[in-house]
């Protein structure tokens, strides 16, 4: 409910200096953070919100920020738009996907400082490192979008007068529970391989710092990526993951850093439509390019399609 939204209208500087005479500084316009669904920025249909702590070292946000707390119906809506976007996105040429993802990297680079200040560690070298790694990761997968096929496809030398080949195909809608941290790099590292191969996704961003992932969505929105290909919800993984697991339109889930009980629950619930559920322990190092990116991340959410045809006249 909008009425629950707390708006801090007094800038931090004023608070620190209070009591003060009439504010001499200009009042900051605070941003209302929204989730990204179907190419639009939306509040939770439930009206619920979560409060998170913003950066302590700069940035325009007040100390306490409200973000939407995604609900069952938000999952429903997001999965629907992801499903509707699926066929069109998968049908785009790999080259076109590659171009769009590279465009995303450009958008990130041009708003790099904004991402850097937004991160919890705002403005620090660590934040710069995370943003740079995130941009580079996008570039990595942009360049992979038209290449992984050659690495996983095969020509099958069958013992008969047939030509056979196997090609990778996206699964469809994949839901992601992104790692809690690093919130930006974690989300980028899990979402990009999915969409590079033609899946669409609904991700629950890491809630240690949801503001930066939601900010990143503004870059997604300006990157030529069609609406619905990536949808980002904020909220509790423990609440949303089981809903995603039960959703029969969702073909697969990529679950990072949840506790054992939730992981088991998600795996259990996913069996209703034989969902491909991948549960991961904490990733040791999202900066390690050898371990945190690669073909394996793409391959996990591919189907293999084998085609046979006779060879004759």
């Amino acid at each position: 409910m909008a009425t629950k939204t707390i708006t801090k209208s007094i800038p931090r500087a004023a608070r620190v200096a209070a009591p003060a005479p009439l504010p001499a500084v200009r009042l900051t316009v605070n941003k209302a953070y929204k989730m990204y669904v179907g190419g639009a920025f939306v509040r939770s249909e439930s009206g619920r919100y979560l409060q998170v702590t913003a950066s302590s070292s700069g940035g325009a946000d007040p100390a306490i920020v409200n973000v939407p707390r995604g609900s069952r119906k938000d999952v429903r809506d997001a999965v629907l738009v992801a499903k509707n976007a699926s066929e069109g996105w998968a049908a785009r040429t790999p080259f076109n996907k590659s171009q769009i993802l590279y465009r995303l990297a450009e958008m990130m680079e041009s708003r790099r400082s904004e991402l850097v200040t937004s991160l919890l560690r705002g403005g620090t070298a660590a934040a710069e490192r995370e943003v740079d790694a995130s941009i580079d990761r996008v570039v990595f997968y942009a360049g992979f979008a038209d290449k992984f096929h050659a690495l996983v496809a095969s020509s099958n030398p069958v013992a008969g007068p047939h030509f056979g080949f196997s090609v990778p195909e996206p699964m469809g809608v994949v839901c992601v529970i992104a790692p809690a941290r690093p919130s930006l790099l974690g989300l980028v590292s899990t979402v990009l391989p999915l969409i590079a191969s033609g899946n669409t996704c609904v991700a629950v961003c890491g809630m240690d710092d949801p503001r930066t992932p939601l900010l990143w969505c503004e870059q997604l929105a300006t990157s030529d990526l069609p609406g619905g290909v990536v949808n980002v919800l904020s909220g509790h993984a423990s609440e949303l993951a089981p809903i995603m697991a039960r959703h029969r339109e969702v073909m697969a889930m990529d679950v990072w850093g949840v506790d054992k009980a939730l992981a088991a629950e998600v795996e259990q619930l996913g069996t209703d439509n034989v969902k491909r559920v991948k549960v991961h322990g904490p990733q040791a190092d999202w900066y390690d390019e050898r371990k945190a990116q690669g073909l394996g991340f793409i391959e996990r959410f591919l189907e293999t399609k084998t085609i046979w045809h006779p060879v004759g006249i």
Binding site: M171, T306, H309
Partner: peptide
């Protein structure tokens, strides 16, 4: 997972088999 064009029910160990 397997599509047979102008043929059907062909199997071979070199040919990946499995479903969506």
């Amino acid at each position: 997972g397997v599509i047979w064009g102008n043929t059907y029910n062909k199997f071979d160990p070199t040919s990946p088999f499995g479903g969506f």
